[in-house]
Design a protein around this nucleic acid. Structure first.
Lengths: 220, 220
DNA sequence: AGAATGTTTTGAACGTGTTCAAGAATGAGT
DNA sequence: ACTCATTCTTGAACACGTTCAAAACATTCT
């Protein structure tokens, strides 16, 4: 039975995440985690190849929670602005308990070799889940988003979401008020910006921008 | 005479930067730097409070070089597109020797507590120098950039430059071909996008976007 | 010159993430 | 019940960034 093994793994992960939240990233040493969990250091490493792997565990959990909370917040909201706000605000909500830890997380995540890197292979599942949220936000909107934008928009919004997360990390205002303000201000702007795509002169610029994004992305 | 002291400092810095370039960030240990420079570990720490401080040294040096090279590349180039390309391409040029080291640099720089953080206090001088390049690129352009954009544009372009740097770090194509492609594609798009500000419907969106940027920035 | 003060240099020591050989515990097959 | 292979678990050991008391050196003052 794999239950015992899984139990130890869970225990280590739970203790680690709890300590990340409560005492921060640096003070949460592998030795402290092991001691608190009542296992040896080596045992923790048997389940998690590195401290970064424990951060990855956190990332997945936060992402999962975001998917659930965002889906709920999207219910009954029709307009793109509202839907965008819902997704971004819930994103900040689920990250909130880890704010003090945010910069360490980003520093870990940004390294291409890290398992937590959102563009990396190890995060494929989490990234897809996150992308799905934005896809749902875009596709469920009425009035509908212009067809030609519908394909790339979710990915671009996801990227913007990364930007918001980055802003949030640096946001030292209480309760991250400024991040909320940014979201509330930017969401309607994005929607209005998109609606400009109907203007002939603007349309071409949009097309070229999308073309550039695609060509840069595809070029291995 | 402070010359002897300054000499040791320079020696340590030179050895460190050389090793960063040649063997990478992680393999360049403080012990290795000290040994290669023929000083003790503690002595290196007498001049640089941390390994990050040595990265800061590198950052400043790269920034300075960028200022020089960019100024040269801007000579005789009138149009905004050309000027933008010049600044961004030279930026990539000066970073090139450190590409393999780039992700570690960014991981260090992104941490708010790091001296290298481009938004931080310790980097004020380097940031101002970098901003000045973009200001010069914008102000020297003819046809001139719309007045209302002129104030915030340099800072926004500087931010875009950070984005390009981030892209560059992840760019694994040979010679960072994709980053070059991105610059060549994005520069004209930015210029065309800016020219859209004359269209009445678009103008309002621009105004609101600038207003948002300002309000979020000022709200301490 | 000698004392006092300030600057520079040293290397051992600390706590960290991580590794690994060795040992326990478990389970399957006979 | 007794192997034997697999899965878990342990804790000492390693290299790293960093600290610090002490020593060496330099400079200034009397």
């Amino acid at each position: 039975m794999a239950a015992k093994s899984e139990q130890t793994r869970q225990l280590v992960a739970d203790v680690a995440l709890k300590m990340f939240r409560e005492v921060g990233f640096e003070k949460t040493t592998m030795r402290a985690i092991a001691q608190e969990a009542g296992v040896s250091v080596g045992n923790a490493y048997y389940y998690f190849a590195s401290k970064d792997d424990l951060v990855q565990e956190l990332y997945i959990q936060v992402q999962d929670e975001h998917a659930v909370v965002a889906a709920h917040a999207l219910e009954g909201v029709q307009d793109l602005v509202g839907r965008l706000k819902a997704v971004l605000h819930t994103g900040v909500d689920v990250m909130a308990p880890y704010h003090q830890f945010g910069s360490d997380f980003i520093a870990t995540a940004i390294r291409p070799s890290s398992p937590v890197n959102p563009f990396g292979e190890a995060s494929t599942a989490a990234r897809e889940a996150s992308l799905a949220i934005f896809r749902s936000a875009v596709e469920g909107a009425s009035p509908a988003v212009a067809k030609k934008l519908r394909r790339d928009l979710p990915e671009l919004l996801w990227l913007a979401h990364m930007g918001v997360a980055l802003f949030w990390v640096y946001d030292r205002s209480e309760g991250q008020r400024r991040t909320r303000k940014l979201i509330d201000g930017a969401a309607p702007l994005v929607a209005r910006g998109l609606s400009l795509a109907k203007i002939p002169g603007v349309s071409k610029v949009f097309d070229d921008a999308l073309g550039l994004v695609r060509s840069v992305k595809e070029d291995s």
